[in-house]
């Protein structure tokens, strides 16, 4: 216990050290005396943009203090709404989470019952396997034109893309988990004349739950990766749109802030699923 604690403490100290080194590198790299990129190119670009090179410099990679200001600014007013192109970061994030949540929930509703069916029936498994094998490796964004054409709604298309990308790991893991429920447990249910519903909910579901949740966790990870790209395409709202919009504004500070935020939210989502996984995992 004691040595484990000291290991955690030492790891934490090392993490802080690495952070300090990274911030140090950042600080040195963005010092005003050494502007990033060739000065000639910068000047030309600045002229094109109708700005002086001195102002343009502040729009490049930010210094640590500029970054800090931005973080404080965004976090102190996360939910303001000044029209379509100026919304608080909290609102953007909420839009993204709502899309991911919607698409993901639809995928759960389809993948888990279908996965059950595939796992229970070798016939259905073999019949659907070629479709799954072909559809699975398709990049979810490749579906976007079809989605936009058929659904004719960009918000719904975003949800569809999330649906189509998060369905596969869940479907495959559910089928695998259900198919590999130990025969002895099924035999116990058979000798006890357990009804199909009770067998599904009291034996197969808990037995396969750890595998199913692993699939759900992978799906959530993929959904969170894909939402940023999807929102860059469909535009309007969301954290992905925010990143693209700030790139068009040439505000790398905001882009970096959004990147950090995407990472933190992704980590929190993953932690939540890890916790759920821990709850349903059984030990023998």
């Amino acid at each position: 216990m004691n040595s484990k604690l000291s290991l955690n403490v030492r790891a934490g100290l090392l993490s802080l050290l690495i952070l300090a080194v990274l911030l140090g590198i950042w600080h040195v790299a963005t010092m005003p005396a050494a502007p990033a990129g060739g000065p000639v190119a910068n000047d030309e670009y600045a002229k094109l943009m109708g700005k002086s090179s001195a102002v343009a410099k502040s729009d490049g990679l930010p210094t640590l203090s500029q970054m800090g200001e931005t973080v404080v600014k965004h976090l102190s007013a996360p939910f303001y709404d000044n029209g379509p192109n100026d919304k608080g970061i909290g609102i953007q994030l909420a839009h993204s989470l709502a899309r991911v949540g919607g698409g993901y929930l639809l995928a759960v509703l389809v993948a888990i019952p279908l996965g059950f069916l595939i796992g229970m029936s070798p016939l259905v498994y073999r019949a659907l396997d070629p479709f799954i094998q072909v559809l699975k490796p398709i990049s979810p964004l490749a579906w976007m034109p079809i989605a936009l054409y058929t659904i004719k709604d960009s918000a719904a298309s975003g949800i569809f893309v999330i649906f189509i990308c998060s369905i596969w790991p869940m479907l495959i893991n559910t089928a695998f988990g259900v198919a590999s429920v130990r025969k002895e447990w099924l035999n116990v249910s058979r000798t006890l004349e357990v009804s199909p519903w009770r067998k599904a909910f009291e034996v197969i579901l808990p037995a396969a739950a750890p595998t199913i949740l692993t699939g759900m966790r992978i799906s959530m990870g993929i959904a969170w990766l894909v939402i940023v790209a999807a929102e860059m395409l469909v535009g309007g709202t969301g954290i992905g749109y925010f990143v693209w919009n700030e790139w068009n504004n040439l505000s790398l500070t905001n882009v970096i802030f959004a990147i950090l935020l995407i990472g933190v939210v992704g980590m929190l989502l993953d932690l939540a699923f890890a916790q759920a996984q821990r709850i349903v995992t059984w030990r023998e």
């Binding site: 002895e184 447990w185 116990v188 808990p206 037995a207 059984w282 023998e284």
Partner: peptide, 12 residues
């Protein structure tokens, strides 16, 4: 009633 070789208890 069957008692199975490997006890066959549901671990959850």
């Amino acid at each position: 009633g069957v008692v199975f070789q490997g006890h066959a208890l549901m671990p959850w």
